[in-house]
Design a protein around this nucleic acid. Structure first.
Length: 268
DNA sequence: AACACGCCCTGCGCGC
DNA sequence: TGCGCGCAGGGCGTGT
C-alpha cells in the first residue's frame, strides 16, 4: 500500500487519536510480521505515553515518554486502525492490539512485509532526502543524479537518494514531468530537474490532501479509503487513453516492478 | 561500489 | 466451479 502520502495520512490520524495517551494493555497476537516480536515487546510498551507521532521516509515514529520510539513500517499491506475498545473484534491477520484506555490501536497485515519494533532512536544513515522538505530542491537533486547510471524511475524509488516515493508516485511524477522512465538519471538536465522536483512535491502533497491512494489495502486510522486512485494519470491505466494526448498508456517492467507511462508524452 | 534480481507473504483476478 | 499462474503499493540480502 503505502508510500509517503499514505504513511503521512496515517501519522496525522494517529496524532489526532493517540497523542498524550497512555498504553494500558498490549496484546501480541502473532509471532511477528517481517521480524519476530521480541520477548519483552509488550512489557516495554506498557504504561508508556505517546508524546509525539511523526514520519521519516515510510516509517511511522511514535515517540514514548521515558525514551524510545515505537517504530512502524507498513510494508505492502500493513494497516493501523484506531477503534473504540468496546467495538473491537478480532480480524484475520491482526498481529498486535495496543490499548489506550477505551481506544485500541490495531496492526493488521496480511502479507507480513511490515515491521514493528521499539527502538532507542531512529537515525538510519541509508535514508535520503525528504521530498517535501526544502533541502529537496533542484540543486540537491542535480547533485544526486550526477554519476547515477541507473534509470530515473529506479533512482526515484531508491530510498537512499529520496525517500517516500514508491511505484505509484514515481510513475505519476515522471508522467507529469514528461520524462521517460528509462532515461539514465545522470542525463537529466537542469530544466528537467526543475520540473521533476516541482512535480514530485505536487504529486505527494496533493495525494496527502486526497487522503492517499487506496488500491485494495490502504485505509486510514479511521478505516476510510483515500481518493487518489480515482485520479491517477497513468498508474493502473494500461490500455486506457492518456488524459493529455489520448494515446494508449503502456507498461514495462523495471527492476521487477510495473511502470506505467504514456509513450507519446514521455517519449518512450 | 553500484546496480539488478530474487525473495519474504497472502489474496485476488484471470484464463483455461 | 475449480485450479494454477501472475501480479500487487516495500525493502533486504545476495550476486555480479
Amino acid at each position: 500500500m503505502p508510500e509517503l502520502p499514505e504513511v503521512e495520512v496515517v501519522v496525522r490520524g494517529l496524532k489526532q487519536q493517540i497523542l498524550n495517551c497512555e498504553i494500558t494493555k498490549v496484546d501480541v497476537l502473532s509471532k511477528g510480521v517481517r521480524t519476530r516480536f521480541p520477548e519483552n515487546f509488550a512489557k516495554n510498551l506498557l504504561n508508556r505515553k505517546v508524546i509525539d507521532v511523526s514520519r521519516r521516509a515510510k516509517y511511522i515514529l511514535c515517540y514514548l515518554n521515558m525514551g524510545g520510539i515505537l517504530l512502524i513500517h507498513l510494508g505492502m499491506s500493513g494497516r493501523v486502525i484506531i477503534q473504540q475498545k468496546a467495538s473491537y473484534a478480532f480480524q484475520k491477520h491482526n498481529h498486535l492490539v495496543v490499548e489506550f484506555g477505551n481506544k485500541v490501536l490495531i496492526y493488521n497485515d496480511y502479507r507480513r512485509f511490515g515491521d514493528i519494533k521499539v527502538v532507542k532512536d531512529f537515525n538510519p544513515s541509508n535514508l535520503g532526502l525528504e521530498p517535501l522538505e526544502e533541502n529537496f530542491n533542484v540543486k540537491t537533486f542535480m547533485a544526486l543524479v550526477k554519476d547515477k547510471k541507473t534509470n530515473i524511475k529506479s533512482f526515484l524509488m531508491n530510498q537512499k537518494y529520496v525517500v517516500g516515493i514508491g511505484n505509484i508516485y514515481a510513475c505519476e511524477a515522471l508522467f507529469l514531468s514528461k520524462i521517460s522512465p528509462i532515461k539514465i538519471a545522470s542525463n537529466i538536465t537542469l530544466n528537467e530537474a526543475q520540473v521533476m522536483v516541482k512535480n514530485i512535491k505536487t504529486v505527494l502533497q496533493s495525494a496527502i490532501g486526497q487522503g492517499g491512494s487506496s488500491l485494495k489495502d490502504f485505509i486510514n486510522v479511521n478505516g476510510e479509503s483515500g481518493k487518489v486512485q480515482n485520479n491517477f494519470w497513468v498508474y493502473g491505466r494500461k490500455g486506457m487513453p492518456c488524459k493529455i494526448c489520448k494515446n494508449e498508456i503502456k507498461t514495462t517492467k523495471q527492476q521487477g516492478r510495473s511502470t506505467f507511462y504514456c509513450p507519446n508524452c514521455q517519449g518512450f
